[in-house]
Design a protein around this nucleic acid. Structure first.
Length: 202
DNA sequence: CTTCCGATTGAA
DNA sequence: TCAATCGGAAGG
């Protein structure tokens, strides 16, 4: 996969989710908040989902909720889980084919507003799919929107510093978390020994 | 219409 | 280990 300079282009995401998911590790999620603050976080944990396997939301049929998942690459797919948390996915592959990458954890690059805190205290505030959406103020209104600066939510390629880190830090591939079907498929990736990963156990 | 339950989280 | 909490999907 080639690399474009600034926001990540849909074409970079136009590959099968299990290929994009590990490639997204190290990329940066950026959120421009209504109050003017800009939040950034390095993606450190992802999971792939795609049509044809039972854990995928688009496994059975196209519905109003999972509609975005069937869209072209580069859209956000956001859904509400357990009545209280949102989860952010990056739509991948091609139009009309359900596939997306769940962003499970970010390592925050920008301190939260209340922060007169040490990095140690806020580094894990986005360590989990529900937590990162809370911090980044992402909800269902973002579902179906392209990930572009004009929509105040987008992706960027890794910085040189992060790239150096990626060269020395192994990527762990394992099975996905929190699902009851398709549990044997090893479509979860995370940075080894990263403090901001949601869970370390398989 | 009614019932069931989830790609989670944090407290017990 | 378990409750919180609610919209969507499935079944009657």
């Amino acid at each position: 996969m080639k690399q474009s300079p600034y926001p990540i282009e849909p074409s970079w995401l136009a590959h099968p989710a299990p290929e994009v998911a590990p490639a997204l590790i190290g990329c940066i999620l950026v959120r421009q908040l209504p109050d003017g603050r800009q939040l950034r976080g390095t993606i450190v944990e992802t999971e792939a989902y795609e049509a044809g396997e039972p854990a995928c939301h688009g496994y059975r049929r196209r519905t109003p909720r999972n509609e975005a998942m069937f869209g072209p690459p580069g859209l956000a797919y956001v859904y509400l889980i357990y009545g209280m948390y949102h989860c952010l996915n990056i739509v991948t592959d091609r139009d009309n084919y359900a596939s997306a990458v769940l962003i499970r954890a970010l390592e925050l690059l920008t301190p939260p507003p209340e922060a007169a805190q040490t990095p140690k205290q806020w580094i894990r505030q986005a360590a989990g799919p529900g937590k990162l959406c809370r911090v980044f103020q992402i909800d269902c209104r973002h579902s179906g929107l392209p990930l572009t600066p004009s929509h105040s939510l987008w992706l960027e390629h890794p910085t040189p510093k992060i790239n150096r880190q990626l060269q020395t830090t192994p990527l762990v591939q394992t099975t996905r978390i929190g699902i009851t079907q398709g549990t044997e498929i090893p479509w979860r990736w995370y940075l080894k020994d990263c403090a901001a990963v949601s869970r370390h156990s398989s």
